[in-house]
Structure formats: C-alpha cells, structure tokens
Computed example of a mutant assay.
Amino acid sequence: MANFVLIAGARLGAWAWAEVVPHLRAAGHAAHPVTLSGLAEKRGLPAGQQTHVQDIVDEIERNDLRDVVLVGHSYAGIPVGQAAERIGDRLAHVVFVDASLPADGESFASDSSDGGAALAATIAANDGFWPPASPNHFGGHGLTEHQIARIVSGSTPHPGATLTEPAALTRPLNEMPATYIHCSLPDGVLPAEWADVLAGYHWQLVELDTGHWPMFSRPRELAQTLLETATK
C-alpha cells in the first residue's frame, strides 16, 4: 500500500483533491491531502517557503507514513521537491503535476521572465499576498463553468513570502525517483527548456490531455495516472 500525500498549487488547499482521493483509496491505497499554512482552513497562519516544506514533512512524520508518494501540483512542486529529500527512506516516489521544480537558492518568482518583479509588485500591492485569480484565468484548460466557479470560490490569497523566498536543496533533484505529468492544454506543447530539463533528469514524462488543474477537469484520469506511474 502506498501513502499518497497530495499538495495542490497556489491559493488552493486539501479540498482541491476531493474528487481524486476516492479513486486512490478504492485502489487500496491511503491518501493524505494537505493544506499548506496560510491557505484554506489554515488561512491566517504566517508562512514562508520553508514553512510549506515543514508542513509536508510534519504531515508525514506525525502520521509515521512509509512508502510515501509525494504529489505536488503547480507551485507545490517547489516545497514538495524539498520535502522529498528530507523524509529519507520514507519516500517511494515523487510526482510533479504540471509543476514548478525547486532549484537551490531560487524562488517560485525567480522562474518568471522578469525575475519575479511583476509578481513582487502584485504581492506588495495586496498586503503581502498573491490574490486569487479571476474566472478568465482558467479559460482554455478543459474546465466547465461549474469547475471554474469551484476553484474561484475556494481559492484564498496566497502568502507572498512562499513565492519569493528561495528553495534549499542539498542534493541534485534528478537523484529522486520521480514522474512529471505535463498537462497539454491550452497549447499542447511542453516548452523546449522544460523538455531539456526533464530529459536530463531521466524521469518518466507523462502527457495528460487536459489543462493545468486536472484534479478538477479530469480527476479519474489523474488518479489513474498517479496509480500507474507511482506504484510500479
């Protein structure tokens, strides 16, 4: 039995995995969706990048989880990648779902073309938070109007420090047993720079024919992909 530890991306919480968890449990595995500090039911808790890493490590250690499959979606790939190396032999596999990848000394914001200047300005203008996205942000990702409304209504402002503080890794990321799930919508193409990185890592690359929020648009297919790629 695997222990799936599921962390959704920016502005989301454990609730985002509600339609994925039953499929994992029906297959005989345990599923532990995690809400990171400052989000959803943990809104108001102070959080920086290392707070989010510790949130994940604490969940695993508190429940004495073994054979852990760590799943990080979007922004959460950054704290998940760091937590993966800190849980030692508890780790079985890491799955990055259309996710950002951590680099030692680099932040989520620094991966943008302007080095994070626009995001930093947005955070400064919103009392230290990245505000929830408008419904238009989710167009072209295979989501119904109802699914978009669920995401928008459930989203909370994201603690800005988690996006601007650097990741800390002690060993190369490509030493981890990992799978990268690329969601093909809206443009259908994995950027060349990402393809080069993933090829160098020798990770398994899986294409999922949906948009950036597959836990809403294709929960059954995402769950099946997690089961197929992470329990081999």
Rank of each mutant, 00 (worst) to 15 (best):
A121P: 08
T122I: 14
T122P: 02
I123G: 08
I123F: 04
I123E: 05
A124N: 07
A124M: 04
A125Q: 13
A125D: 14
A125M: 05
N126M: 02
N126C: 04
G128T: 03
W130E: 14
W130C: 00
P131Y: 00
P131K: 00
P131M: 01
P132F: 10
P132N: 00
A133F: 14
S134N: 12
S134V: 09
P135K: 06
P135E: 01
N136K: 10
N136M: 11
H137N: 12
H137K: 10
F138A: 01
F138I: 03
G139E: 15
G140Q: 12
G140C: 13
G140N: 07
H141P: 02
H141S: 02
H141K: 09
G142K: 02
G142E: 03
L143A: 01
T144M: 11
T144D: 10
T144F: 09
T144N: 09
E145D: 15
E145N: 08
H146I: 08
H146G: 09
Q147G: 03
I148Q: 03
R150L: 15
R150D: 15
R150E: 15
I151T: 01
V152G: 01
S155D: 14
T156M: 07
P157I: 09
P157T: 11
H158V: 05
P159C: 13
G160F: 10
A161G: 02
A161F: 13
A161L: 15
T162W: 00
T162P: 05
T162Q: 04
L163W: 00
L163C: 08
L163N: 06
L163H: 04
T164C: 08
P166C: 01
A167F: 03
A167G: 03
A167Q: 01
L169W: 09
L169F: 07
L169Q: 09
T170C: 09
T170V: 13
T170A: 15
R171G: 01
R171C: 00
R171F: 04
P172D: 15
N174W: 12
N174D: 15
N174H: 14
E175V: 02
E175P: 00
E175C: 02
E175Q: 13
A178H: 00
T179A: 04
T179M: 08
Y180C: 09
H182G: 02
H182M: 06
H182K: 12
C183S: 14
C183P: 09
C183H: 13
S184Y: 01
S184D: 12
L185N: 03
L185E: 13
D187E: 13
G188H: 12
G188P: 09
G188K: 14
V189I: 14
L190W: 04
P191E: 07
A192C: 05
A192P: 08
A192N: 11
W194I: 08
W194E: 11
W194C: 06
W194M: 12
